[in-house]
Design a protein around this nucleic acid. Structure first.
Lengths: 161, 161
DNA sequence: CGCTCATTGTGATTCAAATCATATTCAATT
DNA sequence: AATTGAATATGATTTGAATCACAATGAGCG
């Protein structure tokens, strides 16, 4: 198990077909690979896109800390719950068939942080379609593009939640 | 938060487009809606396809139990970790573009339990394509169909993990 | 038993996302 | 300053999953 002190680390897996799927993005203060506490053979790779500082937490020590320090355990439960929630939200989003609606939902959820290519990958769409949809949305006035490669929803249809 | 004593309860959400997405299937002994412990406004619906018995756990009591009983807290962490793992696996599976490969992966992971329609919904595919792919796979000898609506991978390409 | 309804299954057609191709911008490197 | 490589962007084409349409089977029910 790992603790990200600085930077950003992505947990990725390779499908049989060879494509890279990002499982989780851990920022400063996040823990990584909690499931490894209970299962040995589950394998992911970790990629740091920026320089990052990561603390390695020994499995036995973490398990020990959970029995002794209840606030620690509760914190862990809380972080895991948040992860479960975000996975559910992602599932819901990926269930949206139309590329346009999916891009809109992704924008509303604040997924468009890095590059468009990364955004497209998170959405499970080809970057070409995402570029095209973004262009259309800008043309339709739903989205603004303050700079090259930067897209933002207009206040008109911001996230409700 | 809920505890499923008997039966099976599905956690579902409705997308804006009106389609139903199954977020989680809880069987006997599983807990449901753990994230509700920490957030108030997240909303899912629960559907019992079979008659089921569910125990309602009071939020405050569960939080109390976590501080007092460390084994309880650890159990919760463990269940949540397992959920996170399965969500990651599902993400990986849904990232598979080809319907044929996705169906194969779903079969290998033992998702084909109920009806083909339910299976298709879990895979995020139309049931027509799933039927077609299953037919092809039977024709190709990769899959056996012991009875109408029952499909099973042949030992040749069983799950590696 | 006849009725309804969901599931199973297949065939034909459509449509939209993937793919292929290509140009441009820009930052990092040499 | 020239070179590489990645991201941005758009256009043309293909492909495969969705959709529409329609049978057949089988379970539940009055």
């Amino acid at each position: 198990m790992f603790f990200v002190e600085q930077g950003e680390v992505r947990l990725v897996r390779h499908t049989e077909a060879g494509q890279l799927v990002t499982m989780f993005r851990a920022g400063s203060g996040d823990t990584l690979a909690e499931p490894s506490l209970f299962s040995d053979h589950y394998h992911c790779d970790a990629i740091a896109d920026r320089d990052s500082t990561v603390r390695v937490l020994d499995k036995a020590i973490v398990l020990g800390a959970m029995t002794e320090n209840t606030t620690f355990a509760i914190g862990l439960v809380q972080r895991l719950s948040a992860q479960v929630q975000s996975y559910r939200r992602k599932q819901e989003l990926l269930a949206i068939r139309s590329a346009r609606d999916r891009v809109l939902a992704g924008l509303a959820d604040g997924w468009m942080t890095g590059t468009v290519v990364a955004f497209a990958s998170d959405l499970g769409l080809s970057h070409e379609v995402v570029f095209r949809v973004l262009s259309d949305l800008v043309r339709d006035g739903q989205v603004e593009r303050p700079a090259r490669g930067v897209y933002r929803l207009k206040r008109t249809n911001q996230a409700a939640s």
